[in-house]
Amino acid sequence: MVEVTKEGSNILFNVKGLHKLWAFKSQLQIPAAHIRSARQDAEAVKGWWKGWRMPGTSIPGLFNAGTFFKDDRRIFWDVYHQKKAVIIELEHEEYDQLIIEVENPEAVIALLSSPQTA
């Protein structure tokens, strides 16, 4: 699970608990201006193939965490409960996309979509 907070003009993505170990990452800091969109999409998180994992952890159909390469895109995954997954499109960043599980998807989407954030 990932906790999302705003700190000045940056958005902090804090990976929680053992997910840090599985994802090989504890935090991402991204300028709010580099976030293009945030949404939920049940179809996008389904399926067993998430891409080439480097580094990370994957138990197909159950859990994905870490860096994955798919369709010439670098994607950070941290999802156990797919219903709580948020897909975040980025530009000018190390990752092209974040697909993360959060406690309250609607609140995170609202935070990332607010005019002050963009």
Rank of each mutant, 00 (worst) to 15 (best):
D96A: 08
S9C: 12
S58C: 05
V86E: 06
A32K: 05
S114Q: 15
A42C: 11
L12Q: 01
E94C: 00
K70I: 14
A107G: 01
P115Y: 14
K16G: 09
R74D: 03
Y95V: 10
N10T: 09
I87D: 02
S9I: 13
A107T: 00
W22P: 06
D96M: 08
E103W: 09
S114I: 12
A107E: 04
G17W: 05
L111I: 07
F13D: 00
V102R: 04
Q116L: 15
G66S: 10
Q116S: 14
F13V: 03
S58V: 09
A42M: 13
G47R: 07
E89R: 05
I30C: 00
L21I: 12
A107L: 07
F63Q: 01
F68I: 05
R36Y: 11
E89D: 09
Q82G: 14
V15W: 02
L12K: 07
D96T: 09
G47N: 04
N64R: 14
F24V: 06
A107I: 04
Q27I: 13
K50V: 02
H92A: 02
F24E: 01
M54I: 15
S58M: 08
A65C: 07
L12N: 09
Y95L: 08
G8H: 08
F76G: 02
L18Q: 03
S113Y: 08
N10M: 10
Q29F: 11
A85D: 00
V45T: 03
F24A: 02
P31A: 05
G51T: 06
F63A: 04
A65V: 04
K84R: 11
L111K: 02
D96Q: 11
S26C: 08
V79Y: 03
R53Y: 12
Q116F: 14
L28G: 02
L62E: 07
W22E: 05
E94K: 12
R36V: 12
I100H: 02
V86T: 01
S58D: 03
